[in-house]
Every structure is written in C-alpha cells, then in structure tokens.
Amino acid sequence: MKTFEERFTAWVDGQLTGTELAVFERELAQHPEAAADYADAQKLGALLRAKAIAPQLTNVDFFNLQIEQRIKAGNAHGAAQSKREKVWGFGFLPRLALGGAFCLLAAFGLFQSIIPSGSPVEKSPYFAQVVEAWPSDPSIYATTVYSAEDNVTVLWLDGLDYLPGNTLLQ
C-alpha cells in the first residue's frame, strides 16, 4: 500500500493511471489544498528546468588533459605499490618459509653426503686392557689402531724403549 506522499508524487509526475488515478482523485476531495500543491509542484519543476542550468565546459581539452594526467599519475603510483606488494605482500611469508625449508633440506643432504653414514670408528674391545697397561711415564705416548676386518688391535707406543717385564698384554 503506497503512502499519500508516494501517490501524490506519482500524481504530480503523471505516473498514476487507471483505477489508481480514479481512487486517488476521489481521495483528493478530502484535500482541497492538493490542487494548489499540484500547481506549485509543476511551477517548481518548470523553474528548475528553465533556470537551474549547469554551465557549459569552456575548455574541454584542459579537462580531459587533467583526467589523463591523474590517471597516469595513479597508474605510476599503482605500479610502484604493486611492486612493493610483490616483494613484501601477502605471498612473501609463504615464499620465505618455503625457501627456508628448501635450504634446510639442502644443508641436510650436503651434511649427509660429506659425513659418511654408519657408526663411528669402532673401539677396540681391547682398548680397556691397553689403558690398564698405560705406563706411568709421561714421556711415553700410546696410540691404538683397530681393524675390524682383521679383528686386530695395534698398540703403538712412542717413547717406549723397552717393555717392562711385569707388563702383560692380553
């Protein structure tokens, strides 16, 4: 259901037709001032159309040039901003994380290839016994070399001129 204002506006603008117009005209009998209002609205419209005329643009080229310059300036600014966003924008952190993960993998692979896998040099099962036989003379320097293949441990003693009689190697 349209309000009185809506129907009055439609009436002024000639938009009421048929039954709607007939019903509204009957309703207007209760509004004797409506005819004067209608006339006022028509005069107002005529006044606005006749006198509220926008001035013509005198220098079209200058106006167009200004728009062109603003668009160019906006494009340059947009390109710079886009470049900044490309480096530091939304995709930067995921790319950084991916790069970091790749570096870690590469470093791990390199580490694995350089450092041979497997357990470190096996210690001789006789090492403890050799240590027990360690001389108290500080001028003697002992080294052991163990070959797992041959199952042999070699004890190399530097600075030992003789083997004491009470020392037993098992």
Partner: peptide, 15 residues
C-alpha cells in the same frame, strides 16, 4: 517508494 517519498519532501521544501 523511497524515491517518491524523497521527491515529495524535496519538492515541498523547495516550494
């Protein structure tokens, strides 16, 4: 309806 209402009051004020 809103347009018609706005027109009604705008016209009234200008009148």
């Amino acid at each position: 309806g809103t347009v018609m209402s706005r027109l009604f009051y705008a016209r009234k004020k200008l009148q």
